[in-house]
Write a protein that binds this DNA or RNA. Structure first.
Length: 593
RNA sequence: GCGCCUGUAGCUCAGCUAGGACAGAGCAUCGGAUUUCUAAUCCGACGGCCGGGGGUUCGAAUCCCUCCAGGCGCGCCA
């Protein structure tokens, strides 16, 4: 299956091949505005290789090209460029033919058929509040899931909950000291947060040297609690289960609001009985070894025994100076141990061609270690860190410990109520308004993130994240409702039929066709770079050009019936592309706003 | 100290993977458009030594070096 733009590029390639000129498809690009051209081929590289003047080469190529049987009306030499212009009716015919074959699947492809990708995303920590910090992983992961599925891949979206580790030792310890059953049931998240924050405050206050009563520092007691948990101590286990259940309920409410779903939700704890095997096999293969811990790394802790060892994977030969530690000196596991077990499980279970980790950029170094360790352990499935810049607050970085945190649910609710303020004066039922506000508010939040590249860090700003005009989700959603309004008023319940012949295209119509033609490419580009904003940017330009079209070109009152039905079909295509494209970004549309 | 990322208009960002045609948007500001397919819209104006310097090239926002600024990371946290 191919799409119009790819076929057009193919035609250019074969035109040039017939003149013995070799060109890569990527050298064919959209013409810059103001050149009366649609596709452009810069000839500078070829000219250098042939030692010719680019402008002369362009002219000589043009003089020998026959556009017979192609989608192009003209080709001109302009400087060192070949500038191709579509025959508008040919472009129309090709785009309409692509679209009408399967409107609801427009932009789909089969490149991923028979291939599997695991995407690890969202992955919040149990017993901590779901903050704006988890937003990016959640919505970028969701978008990538949609995008790869659309390209025919089998995608396993896995929410790798942080439900295991030393932090639970801390929480169990804090709960033993200061917890309250009643408070926990009344307000689980904030009580757990309180305990977590208090633990760190008191541990800091103890300092590195002064020991608490009973001879053990808080940190040491927390480690002891985690050790008990990891060894299956019933009291630790049942308390932990309670924390997990309470947090899960909270998270699910957020996922419901965001419209995010997972194929599997397997927390770190799921792998707890595989950790020993991971460590053992790494030792047996000679990849890992036991070592005395570095004294400096142990800090000033009190209970160091002379015989204690850690298990680690040295990575010097991989060019990484810091080894990956698999087992702490008290015998318990680390994040990396659980990650290795997780990756092995995923490989055994789903046989993916790659595993994507949608995780913040601050973990980049760790992922280099992890990826190198996977290779040493004999796994050739690429583990790709799809990293993104972290969200900071104007006061500094988000810190759960210091209680400096903005709850995602608050952001969502604020977004919805800001959207609701705009719908108030419309003639809609209360339910419709609520539904629209939800779609618009959530859409605004998601779009703010998905319309820019992942890697940049974001300083949280209410107005920016919840913007409702300009380059924003509501702008695109609004353009969609305009397409729906026109079609609703067209007087038929049938979707418009594809036109057999297109009348003269106006200068407002042609750009729409070009964007529609370019939409499938934007999906491929988004997948290749793991950058959903490739799609967002294309949709935004489509919506811009549609808004202008809407303002200037009458559809229902078009001059002739043929023109009217052709434009109706164009409107149908624009609306569908907006809906499908926003859908890939995880953003819903409304019929009215 | 070492490593990675970022620096484009007053603000927020595209463009950098594979160097090419006068660097594009949105917000803000100012001016205009509505008895019309809903103005969450459209049109126009204003606004940029693409962080500084050097290099490669016919050509650099894009590639290389260097400096500056900000962010992040660097063995038993996740």
């Amino acid at each position: 299956m191919s799409y119009a733009l790819a076929r057009a590029r193919g035609q250019i390639l074969s035109l040039l091949t017939s003149q013995n000129l070799e060109l890569a498809e990527s050298e064919i690009r959209e013409a810059a505005p103001g050149h009366e051209a649609d596709l452009a081929v810069p000839l500078f590289r070829l000219a250098r290789e042939l030692s010719q003047d680019p402008a002369l080469l362009a002219r000589s190529i043009v003089s020998q090209l026959s556009l017979e049987g192609t989608m192009f009306a003209s080709v001109r030499a302009e400087g060192g460029y070949l500038n191709f212009r579509f025959r508008p009716e040919a472009l129309c015919q090709e785009v309409v033919s692509d679209f009408s074959r399967n409107p609801e699947g427009y932009g789909r492809s089969e490149v991923g058929r028979g291939r599997t990708i695991v995407i690890d995303f969202s992955s919040p920590n149990i017993a901590k509040p779901f903050s704006v910090g988890h937003l990016r992983s959640t919505i970028i992961g969701q978008a990538l899931h949609n995008i790869f599925s659309w390209l025919g891949y089998r995608v396993i979206g896995d929410n790798h909950l942080g439900d295991w580790g030393t932090q639970f030792g801390k929480l169990l310890c804090a709960y033993e000291l200061w917890g309250s059953e009643a408070e926990l049931n009344r307000n689980p998240t904030s009580h757990l947060l309180e305990l977590y924050v208090r633990f760190h405050q008191e541990a800091d206050a103890e300092g590195g040297t002064r020991k608490a009563e009973g001879g053990m520092s808080l940190e040491a007691r927390a480690r002891e609690w985690f050790r008990r948990l990891e060894q299956g101590d019933p009291a630790a286990r049942s308390r932990w289960e309670q924390f997990v259940a309470l947090s899960t309920r909270e998270f699910n409410r957020i996922y419901e609001l965001l419209g995010v779903r997972f194929d599997v939700t397997l927390g770190e704890s799921f792998y707890s009985d595989r950790l020993e095997g991971v460590v053992r096999r790494a030792l047996e293969r000679g990849v890992a070894r036991r070592e005395k811990p570095l004294a400096a790394a142990r800090g000033s802790d009190e209970d160091v025994r002379p015989d204690e060892t850690v298990v680690l994977i040295p990575l010097d030969e991989q060019g990484i100076a810091v080894p990956l530690i698999l087992q702490k000196s008290d015998g318990t596991s680390l994040y990396a141990t659980r990650e290795l077990a997780t990756a092995e499980y995923r490989i055994e279970t789903w046989h993916p061609e790659r595993i994507l980790y949608v995780v913040g950029k601050e973990q980049e170094f760790y992922f280099r270690q992890f990826s190198a360790a996977m290779k040493l352990l004999g796994h050739d499935v690429p583990c790709i860190h799809v990293s993104f810049g972290l969200i900071r607050l104007p006061q500094g970085r988000i810190s759960t410990r210091q209680g400096r945190v903005i709850l995602l649910e608050d952001v969502i609710n604020e977004a919805i109520s800001r959207a609701a303020a705009v719908v108030t004066d419309r003639e809609l039922s209360a339910e419709e308004k609520a539904e629209i506000s939800r779609k618009v508010g959530i859409g605004a939040i998601k779009y703010a993130d998905l319309s820019q590249s992942r890697i940049k860090e974001v300083v949280f700003d209410w107005d920016r994240m919840l913007s409702l005009d300009g380059d924003s989700a509501p702008y695109l959603q609004y353009a969609y409702t305009r397409t729906r309004a026109i079609l609703r008023k067209a007087g038929t319940t049938q979707p418009p039929a594809p036109p057999t012949a297109w009348p003269q295209l106006t200068s407002e119509e042609l750009p729409l066709l070009k964007h529609i033609a370019a939409f499938p490419d934007s999906i491929v580009a988004a997948a290749e770079s793991y950058e959903p904003h490739r799609i967002a940017n294309r949709l935004y330009r489509l919506a811009q050009d549609f808004s202008l079209f809407y303002d200037r070109v009458p559809v229902l009152r078009a001059e002739t019936p043929q023109l009217r039905s052709a434009r109706l079909y164009l409107v149908e295509m624009v609306g569908t592309v907006l809906r499908l494209g926003l859908g890939l970004l995880g953003i819903e549309v409304a019929e009215r706003m």
